[in-house]
Amino acid sequence: MYLPSFSLQGRTAIVTGAGRGIGRAIAVGLAEAGCDVALVSRTSADLEETAELIRSCTKAQTYIIPADITSKEEIAHVFAKVTRDAGNLDILVNNAGMNIRTPALEVTEDQWDTIVQTNLKSAFMASQQAGQYMKEHGGGRIINISSVGGHVALRTGVVYGSTKAALIQMTKILALEWGQYDIRVNSVGPWYFRTPLTEKLLSDEQYMKEIVDRTPLRRIGQLEEVVGPVIFLASDASNYVTGQTLLVDGGMSIYGF
């Protein structure tokens, strides 16, 4: 009687940055929970690989949509295609993101603009599109993939951390404004997971040791460990949760000296 449903059967999601890493894992996880998934990133070949993974283990429908998510016009095209072809949109996962690790005194204007546009501007524009559709169709879920780096300070990450902190605050404001439309907006903040973005860093034994020493669970995360929190926030199990950031960090953010 009291066990809520984690099933996403009959729902449709858009996942940005779905071609690799965390985005790919989330897309496959949503499909395994019963969701049809629109896969969005710049690179068609990566999206095809994600779609093939989904087809190999589920009966979910996939929609492959290569797009530059920093372009308002291309984002509008993504939403128009999904709502036309799938007939509905229930979930948006703003996962696309990037980092250029640079000491603060060396950050260039181009680096600032590139990271802000990818991590923050694109998430807002996609959320705006989703919010308009969901307002008119009875509600939905928006899940922003932020970072523990938006919650605590990390070295050489001033632009990245600033965008992720802004994404956490954006999550709260959108939740406040759109709750009246039954739109729930939450975020997930990962720590270190082995992805194409982090592979080079984590191959450095000393760097890996520093990460593990800073993490109470004494290891980095496994990709499937991000999926569960996203499924929770996308499903009826989180019906009374909005404006929150769930840190998936092995306890790193509670670390003290």
Rank of each mutant, 00 (worst) to 15 (best):
A67N: 02
L39S: 01
N144Y: 05
V93E: 11
Q111K: 10
E210V: 12
R24N: 12
R55Q: 14
V227S: 01
V78T: 03
V93R: 01
I231W: 01
I211W: 04
V227Q: 00
G150R: 03
K121E: 11
L120I: 10
E74K: 05
Q117K: 14
R155T: 11
T118P: 06
G189P: 07
G34F: 00
G228D: 13
S253R: 10
A18G: 01
V158F: 02
S235H: 03
I115H: 00
L176Y: 13
N99T: 15
A80E: 14
G23V: 04
R24A: 00
V93T: 06
G139Q: 01
D68P: 11
I211Y: 03
V230I: 14
T245K: 04
E199C: 06
Y63K: 04
D110W: 03
L202W: 07
A123L: 05
E73P: 04
A153G: 15
P229T: 13
G150S: 04
P190R: 01
K200V: 09
E225V: 01
G149F: 04
N88L: 08
G140A: 07
A237C: 11
S56G: 13
E225S: 09
S253T: 06
V185G: 10
I65F: 15
Y240L: 15
L3V: 15
C57A: 12
G138E: 02
T245R: 04
D236Q: 13
D68N: 15
S253V: 10
Q132F: 08
P103Q: 05
E49I: 13
I91S: 03
R24K: 14
A67D: 04
M208E: 09
N239W: 00
F257C: 04
R219M: 10
S56N: 14
A126S: 15
S5V: 13
H151W: 05
N144W: 03
A13G: 11
I183G: 11
E225T: 06
E73I: 06
A123H: 04
D36P: 09
T58K: 09
H151L: 09
E49C: 10
D213L: 13
L217Q: 14
L105Q: 14
A13N: 06
R214S: 14
A60G: 08
D213S: 14
G10C: 12
S238T: 12
G140E: 01
D113Q: 13
S187A: 15
I75K: 00
E136F: 07
G221L: 00
R155K: 14
S44E: 15
I69S: 10
L120C: 06
R11A: 02
R184T: 02
I142W: 02
A33G: 13
A153E: 14
G221T: 02
K209H: 10
T171F: 02
I26P: 00
T12L: 05
L89E: 09
G189V: 00
C57L: 10
I211K: 03
G29P: 04
V28D: 03
